[in-house]
Design a protein around this nucleic acid. Structure first.
Lengths: 179, 179
DNA sequence: AGACAACCTTACGTTCACGTAAGGGTATAA
DNA sequence: TTATACCCTTACGTGAACGTAAGGTTGTCT
């Protein structure tokens, strides 16, 4: 059932999955993808299942697996003597990844919150600082927010300025006999 | 207010934030971090605010900003003539990132779902395939799940086998028509 | 004063997932 | 048959965020 009429060349395949030809070559180098056959002249010829294969690869990449890890999946499945053996490994890795993804989600939600706070702060800060320099802004004492109350995402921006405010003479500092 | 007693050297700082000395140097190269001063011999000396600074950097990295982008924040803030100008840019970037993070979260939730499905499938598959090879497993017709119903994360693993089932003559490696 | 860890600068190495270029051969339509 | 669009292999380049090594200096302890 090697239906040549449906065969794609690498460029067509690449376009079909929104990737580059180079990527196809790379996947092949890593043993993740292989053309069903070749033309007389050496052109790679793929069947439609190649599209699914690449979508699968992309999906796993999105999950956070590297191509090398995906390579591992394939080898596990090919090299395993029995199905349970292969399944068990895949199961373990998927489960591990599931936990990681879960952690990542909650972490991103924290970040989302931080960003919202920073934005809110910036909004409330805007009217008061119409004519101040950035430095003064970081020191302004608007109604609701004082120094030290600034959200960390914003505060970090100004800590360099605060440093400058120490008015350190740039040099001279005999350091002896402590610690 | 140059309280020498609290000054850290780069190694101590690195340990304090769980990063390497090289990272500190890198941040400095990029203009993200600077020692408050130097010892006579040239050792970098940091105040405690450096810890916050690095935590800020790390947080932004976690959000998905590159060090170059963080560099941009700093420059924006330092170079801007007025506070509103700087704030506006930061505001825009934060807002943009907030959207990205949101998208990322929903994407991860989809992935979470995919993973759960794949795991569930693997679990249900386990009893039936105790003595089958991986290839046979992918073709098994257990109670609830038939071919084609396998979750994409699992199906991709076997699509290569299906390819093999086309009974393609083993490919010839040497491509002699070049050079 | 000697030992030794920690530090300095400079600069090349590493991983990942490709990008890009060179120097060709192939497929197809006009 | 020539144009040209696509394809082949080989191989070096890229960017991000450091790692690592070399060769030398400094700080602290004893």
């Amino acid at each position: 059932m090697t239906d040549d009429s449906k065969m794609m060349r690498v460029g067509e395949l690449a376009k079909a999955v929104g990737k580059t030809v180079r990527a196809m070559h790379l996947y092949e180098e890593l043993g993740l993808l292989e053309p069903r056959t070749r033309s007389e002249g050496g052109f790679r010829l793929y069947g439609p299942e190649a599209v699914d294969r690449i979508h699968w690869i992309v999906k796993l990449q999105a999950i956070g697996f590297t191509l090398a890890e995906i390579q591992g999946f394939v080898k596990d499945f090919q090299g395993a003597r029995s199905a349970p053996e292969a399944s068990a490994r895949v199961h373990a890795m998927f489960q591990d990844k599931l936990r990681q993804i879960h952690d990542q989600i909650t972490q991103l939600q924290v970040i989302e919150n931080d960003l919202s706070e920073a934005l809110e702060y910036l909004d409330s800060c805007r009217p008061c600082s119409t004519e101040l320099t950035p430095r003064e802004c970081s020191a302004c004492d608007h109604q609701g927010h004082h120094i030290g109350e600034a959200p960390p995402l914003f505060a970090g921006l100004t800590s360099r300025k605060l440093e400058t405010e120490y008015d350190v003479p740039v040099k001279v500092l005999s350091r002896e006999g402590n610690n």
